[in-house]
Computed example of a mutant assay.
Amino acid sequence: MLRLSALYRYPLKSAKGETLQEIALDKLGLAGDRRWMLVDEASGRFLTQRAVAQLSQLSALWNATGGLTLAAPGHSPINIDLPGANAELRGVTIWRDTLRVPDAGNEAAQWLSEFIGKPTRLVQVPLDRARSTQSGYGRDDDQVAFADGFPLLLIGEASLQDLSQKVGRPLEMLRFRPNLVIEGSEAYAEDSWKRIRIGDVEFRVVKPCSRCILTTIDPQSGERSADREPLATLQKYRSEADGAMFGQNLVNDSDGRLEVGMPVEILE
């Protein structure tokens, strides 16, 4: 039987993830997932571990008020409130999208600028300011917060085991930053799924996930693999026109709630 074996949320794009036992869904995927993002103060362009490796050591936990609690080595934790209705709007760029979203204020900016080492702002995206998902996939009204292209990422446990065997060492699931992990399927079975149901929620499988250099960063130490693994191996046997594929992007078709252990049904 297929079942949901793990749930992960990433409140701040490209920072550490949270391991969850249960979570609600809204129209942008897991509640609170990648609703916050760091941007360069001058340009408004988004920042990730691709350019700022120390983000791998930044903990950003969703707190009871809907805000963030930030913590990092050598820095005292700080609680950041959810921006209010009168918060300053900041123009930001994420990939090819530009939008105006609430800024989290100067206290957060100062803390993060000191941690990163350059002027940085923290921004948050409300439901009513979400982006459209990647053009050419899914439906015209599908939306996403600050995830790269789609609200959710699914990976099968067997797929990770197969990749680990090919690389020759165990690989951490968090290296690939999924939201949903499925056990009980064959390796890469998720490649053929089109629609699935978990609990009362149906999901559309809209696009394979093209992997990048972030997969070579150890999620615990933040160090990059000298041998470029596992990306080098993925490029040998999982390459398509858009890159090396691992995992599937999903869109949820309703709100609802997920809990680890729920059965997974393949609808199509």
Rank of each mutant, 00 (worst) to 15 (best):
29 G>E: 12
32 G>F: 11
38 L>K: 03
37 M>A: 01
62 W>D: 04
67 G>P: 03
69 T>I: 07
63 N>P: 02
64 A>L: 07
47 L>C: 05
44 G>R: 08
16 K>M: 15
19 T>S: 15
46 F>H: 12
25 L>E: 02
17 G>M: 10
67 G>T: 07
64 A>S: 14
40 D>W: 12
65 T>Q: 15
45 R>P: 00
24 A>Q: 13
58 L>R: 05
44 G>Y: 10
50 R>D: 05
30 L>R: 03
28 L>E: 00
58 L>A: 08
59 S>C: 03
37 M>Q: 06
17 G>F: 04
41 E>G: 02
55 L>Q: 07
53 A>V: 06
35 R>M: 06
64 A>G: 07
44 G>V: 04
29 G>I: 10
28 L>D: 00
21 Q>I: 11
64 A>Q: 13
52 V>K: 05
29 G>T: 06
30 L>C: 08
50 R>G: 11
54 Q>N: 12
46 F>V: 11
36 W>M: 08
35 R>K: 08
27 K>R: 15
51 A>T: 15
46 F>A: 14
43 S>L: 04
35 R>P: 09
32 G>P: 08
19 T>G: 08
54 Q>D: 10
61 L>N: 12
31 A>G: 01
46 F>T: 09
36 W>H: 08
32 G>W: 11
53 A>F: 02
22 E>R: 15
20 L>R: 09
42 A>L: 11
24 A>I: 00
35 R>C: 10
39 V>F: 04
19 T>V: 14
16 K>I: 02
48 T>F: 05
48 T>D: 01
45 R>N: 10
56 S>C: 09
35 R>V: 11
67 G>Y: 01
34 R>G: 02
66 G>T: 08
64 A>V: 08
23 I>G: 00
16 K>V: 11
67 G>E: 05
26 D>P: 01
57 Q>H: 06
53 A>D: 06
54 Q>S: 14
53 A>R: 14
19 T>L: 12
41 E>K: 13
25 L>I: 12
27 K>H: 13
27 K>E: 15
17 G>E: 04
50 R>F: 01
43 S>W: 01
69 T>K: 03
64 A>F: 00
56 S>Q: 06
34 R>K: 07
63 N>Y: 01
